[in-house]
Amino acid sequence: MGHSGTVHFHSQTLMEDIEATLPDMTGIMDAVDGSFAFQVKMRSFSFEKALMQEHFNEDYIESDQFPKASFQGQIIGWSESLGDGETHVVQAEGVFWCHGVEQRRTIDGSLKKADDGWEISCRFPVQLEEHDIDVPGWATYLISSTIDVDVQIKLTQQ
């Protein structure tokens, strides 16, 4: 259906906070059955520090090899009544694909029908280990083993 979303992630350890945002996420939803897909380009993430961004792309996410991450799934218990203009807390089930590794995930989020489309937000943790993202021993003080991912997107009717 449309785009204009942001993704934000956050890693927190005692030593260092690492945050990144991405302004140009794309998404699509089928309002008939509640199936949807979101996709981001890893190189679009921008970090507070230039070196973090380089390390993210070169050493951890390996963006040349795995340029994209995506989530593709279905909202559980989809019905017409979710489009009544109120904010609904929903769960979605699907496949999260990142760093070349697929994981079946169930995520929590919220959904609201606005005049010109759907506003969707969700938040889910990603375990680096589950996606084969190696963090060397010395970096475990700097990079959390669980990254919180925060997605806000507005899908406009097309």
Binding site: H3, T26, A37, E54, Q72
Partner: peptide, 22 residues
């Protein structure tokens, strides 16, 4: 059907020029 949604996404995304890093 599932792939269809991601495919439509890929078609709608314009490729961008990215400088080679490192």
């Amino acid at each position: 059907r599932g792939q269809g949604l991601l495919d439509i996404l890929n078609e709608s995304v314009e490729p961008v020029t990215v400088p080679v890093s490192a």
